[in-house]
Design a protein around this nucleic acid. Structure first.
Lengths: 344, 344
DNA sequence: TCAGATAATGACAGCGCTGTCCCCGTTTCC
DNA sequence: GGAAACGGGGACAGCGCTGTCATTATCTGA
């Protein structure tokens, strides 16, 4: 059945176990014939190496951890699902496996987490999503233990970023700039903006993109801008403030989809038809973005690819390739759906 | 740093490594004093046992796999995220870890998956979500390999279910019955229904609940029922068919939230106001259900708890407790939001 | 009083691999 | 022609734990 070991393969192929190991790991020293013989033996025995044994004796664990935090219901989690999917695919291709860990930010025991990751699991790397990827304490604990990490959409700290791991992101500035320009092309000039979480670099970059597109770097009129925290709930009061004004904007651009959905919700309740009387746009292209009414115009991030790249980075790095420790920027794309139209 | 091994602990506590192992695993033979000494030594050294070593030498791997399939964008995935969260929590409590695996149903290589799970990872159990949890081929492969599995919302096969693992579910019949009755209490009599995927037992049970509540077991008029597949897209034509009739229903109950959202979308496009001219209800309480317009009346399943129970079952079983091989039913609850109201 | 039960612990052999070191036979090149 | 270099492969010692069995000390009851 499933009990074939490397010894069995070695016996059948008539070589030493070391040679089997070499062939299976693609190490150089092995003649083509031997290689073929071993492969054949392995296949015929339906041999699969044991992860634990490999991890115990070697220096790799073939394990990558994806660490997330935050409330379930917050639909930012959706983003994590997609990331995970990409990471799993990359893991599979590399013979790796993905562990999912979760940490409650309230009772956050970073020490225990780090210890588990580094000592018990000996993972080859961890993938950190916001806001964990920006936590200096966690980052430095991980760095101390020598755990490779990849940060998703990180807030780079100019002093530390090279010690805190590689990151993947989109060009948030350009994404916001383009979306704003798209809205302007439709004829909008009075475009409200809902900010993202102030602790997250992407928030500032998106705002800058909006500002530069609409005001050419000049100041943003106060009536057009409202604070937000990237959550649906934080978008509600912001939308109400923007839409409650005597002369309300003809379009609202929220720094992410969750908040854009909040705008949709408030507009609906106030009886403001979208997109005829109000255009709404977001960023992220959450799965829900296409099922809300009307479907949301947004910016799509290649989240799956980003997850895959993150995993691949760890795999390659563990295998020896030392990549430069920086940030990889992925292409985004404008997704125009039905929540935007020229102003009345 | 992080290099403490069981040898170090044994040395510090002045006992043999076997005794350390015993204490740390909560095995019976150990005097209170020794136990205390070992615990202290372990703490002072910040010792964490190596998962690989434990797995390699013992009979448990401390690993549970959550296997899912299906397209990312389908918002049924949200459900998986929540399950995962629950499972992770239970894992943590038991010293276990959760692996996430994904299988593409198109190229579904169940053999390779099973082999990986059983031979490479030697997981202590797998959690299967629909529709995987109903695939006879996968189920029997897993059973052959002796892999414990827990099925989420499974379609029980009367001949085989005791060989195919334990399951967790809600009482779909009652959930649908109650929702239908709720709609009736509001004054609705003309309630349309959108069916779930015919291969999934929950679909039939939900339909039966609806039928028994509304027609007391009698036949459902054809004009009130439409086929669906549990996906948003499959709900679109069903909703159009229901709402396109000359005398359209005053309420539509979809077998799940994704399809209920499709109804919302179609109603929106047809200019039918919800809930004033049409009530809409679903089942699942997806995260998105509360952010669509109007927020959806639905039935909440305790998905997180179900995930936790699934993991706990595997952990307990591996530790020795042999649970009865059946299905555990969790309580659901009606969540009344704004998509339902008495008919005009 | 003494065999036998019970409690508390240790010795030791692996689990199934990888890393390190070593060996043998061919080339290669001055 | 001989030393060095290289390609191909094996022996062997662990990695850090758990399982099994042995050992000692203490206790039990007829």
């Amino acid at each position: 059945m499933s009990k074939a070991t490397i010894y069995d393969v070695a016996r059948v192929a008539n070589v030493s176990i070391k040679t089997v190991s070499r062939v299976l790991n693609g190490e150089p020293k092995a003649s083509p014939e031997t290689r073929a013989r071993v492969m054949e033996a392995a296949r015929s025995l339906n041999y699969k190496p044991s992860l634990s044994a490999r991890a115990l004796s070697g220096s790799r664990s073939f394990l990558i951890a994806l660490v997330s935090s935050g409330g379930v219901s917050d639909n930012a989690m959706l983003y994590v699902t997609e990331l995970q999917m990409g990471a799993i695919q990359a893991c599979r291709a590399g013979g790796y496996h993905l562990l999912t860990e979760y940490i409650d930010l309230n009772t956050s025991d970073f020490d225990a987490l780090t210890e588990t990751l580094a000592s018990t699991l000996r993972v080859d790397g961890v993938i950190l999503v916001p806001p964990l990827c920006d936590d200096p304490q966690l980052l430095s604990l991980l760095a101390e233990r020598g755990v490779t990490c990849v940060r998703i959409s990180p807030t780079l700290n100019p002093d530390q970023d090279d010690a805190w791991g590689w990151g993947v992101d989109i060009d948030n500035y350009r994404a916001a700039f383009q979306m704003t320009r798209y809205l302007m092309d439709q004829g909008h000039r009075d475009i409200g903006f809902i900010q993202g979480h102030p602790g997250h670099a992407a928030a500032a970059q998106r705002q800058a993109g909006y500002r530069d597109a609409l005001f050419d770097g000049g100041p943003i009129p106060e009536r057009l801008i409202q604070p937000g925290l990237f959550t649906f709930n934080s978008g509600l009061p912001a939308a109400r403030a923007l839409l409650g004004q005597a002369q309300r904007p003809t379009a609202i651009f929220a720094a992410n989809d969750s908040m854009a959905m909040a705008v949709l919700s408030v507009a609906y309740k106030m009886g403001i038809p979208v997109p005829t009387a109000l255009s709404v746009a977001g960023i992220d292209d959450l799965p829900a973005a296409s099922v809300v009414c009307p479907p949301l115009t947004t910016v799509r991030q290649p989240v799956m690819e980003m997850g895959a790249a993150a995993a691949r980075f760890i795999i390659d790095r563990t295998a020896g390739q030392v990549g430069s420790y920086l940030k990889q920027i992925f292409d985004h794309s404008l997704v125009v759906r039905e929540s935007t139209a020229p102003p009345a």
